[in-house]
Design a protein around this nucleic acid. Structure first.
Lengths: 230, 230
DNA sequence: GTCTATAGGCGGATAGAC
DNA sequence: GTCTATCCGCCTATAGAC
């Protein structure tokens, strides 16, 4: 009986995976806003109503894709982090940043899905929050290791931001100096900004050597966060 | 006859403006990817085929909206720049950055239209390039003034980025130190990254005091570009 | 779980009358 | 420039048979 249920569930998740794969392909062609269950069903060789057994609505399929994207990005970041565990914090930071960019270049439409314009009419459920924070956690880990080890050059923090930085620290970066927490949040947003510009075409005819450009910017951001130069 | 043509053209541009206004409203509700000529026509009290006299296709309407958005943002930035002409460069920079954020908060859907995920299947024509560069030009002007006046603290530039920075400078920032050009391009992308996170919901339950957070980040970026502290 | 059929919409774009 | 009519396509979602 265990086997039976196991087989059934395996079949179920395999079909669900095929649906998501096709949906990811549609994402590239049509964008999240026009993702259509019918089109996915057609392509995957089912009839549209059959999809509703796997995803109760279009929005649920979207949610699954978003969670997968965050998890895939998070895994890429964590992998790079672990692979560079021997290095100094600044180099670990740069390795994670490079992995994030590598993932984004390899999955531009999933990047757009999670960091681009929100899908109108779609509200992300709570389930996305955990996966969404994996990359950030990874960066926090690097900074925490630096703090515990060689120490941080604390970035400046104006008086008006002190309370906010302390709140952030208590909320999700316990143990870090508040200056570093605030700088880290800003740095992460700025990193994604660089990737958005690259992926969304804003660097067209502006930045040519994007590898070097991004690597340098990421390294500067490491400095902003307080990681000591290598 | 001049009057006649004037009147005709005035009527034409007034209707076109009404169409664009309604389209902007739809942008908020449906997003650019699902902007529909028919829905706009319905709302504006015309029949869909009549719209084709004003915009030959859906994409042309989209292009008009994009150009308007860039122009509106550019005007906001230029206005803030002119209003702060007496101040020191670093303060001018901060004033322009604040104006950009003010515009973005006031026009989130137009911000998403130009800096969010690209609309699948839509390719921006050459006409958008000029308006798109107005904000950047404005920031370049501030840095140029600093360079000509009190001077810049040149940001560091790794050897691998030197040639690229010189090319950028020759292409669109003649006269600036290449270090500043490269830092400026990065800073602009990072600024937009901060705004994307704020507008697209990534700061939800993360950053609360967004005014202060952004102002501080913008000021740090001024330093990155080489503007001397106030 | 998958199918057919159906309800009740929506879209872009064009032709041709006025 | 605006209208009607039309072509031909698309969608989400449900009911009910198998």
């Amino acid at each position: 009986m265990n086997t039976v249920r196991g087989a059934r569930e395996r079949a179920r998740t395999e079909v669900a995976a095929a649906i998501k794969d096709e949906a990811r392909r549609m994402l590239a062609a049509e964008g999240a806003a026009r993702l259509s269950l019918r089109a996915v069903a057609r392509e995957v060789g089912m009839v549209s109503s059959a999809l509703y057994r796997y995803f109760p609505s279009r929005d649920d399929l979207l949610t699954a894709l978003i969670i997968d994207a965050y998890d895939s990005l998070g895994a890429a970041a964590e992998g790079a982090d672990e692979a560079s565990g021997e290095l100094r914090p600044r180099e670990r930071w740069n390795a994670v940043c490079a992995a994030v960019r590598g993932w984004a270049l390899a999955h531009p439409h999933e990047f757009a899905l999670v960091y681009g314009s929100p899908v109108p009419g779609y509200a992300a459920p709570q389930d996305t929050v955990g996966p969404a924070s994996r990359v950030a956690e990874c960066l926090i880990g690097v900074v925490r290791a630096a703090h515990a080890g060689e120490g941080l050059d604390r970035p400046p923090l104006p008086a008006g931001l002190r309370a906010e930085a302390e709140r952030m620290t208590a909320d999700f970066a316990e143990g870090l100096p508040p200056e570093a927490t605030a700088a880290l949040v800003a740095a992460w947003a700025q990193l994604v900004g660089l990737l958005s510009f690259e992926l969304f075409g804003q660097f067209h005819r502006v930045v040519e050597d994007r590898d070097a450009f991004y690597a340098h910017a990421a390294d500067r951001l490491a400095g902003e966060v307080g990681l000591r130069a290598a």
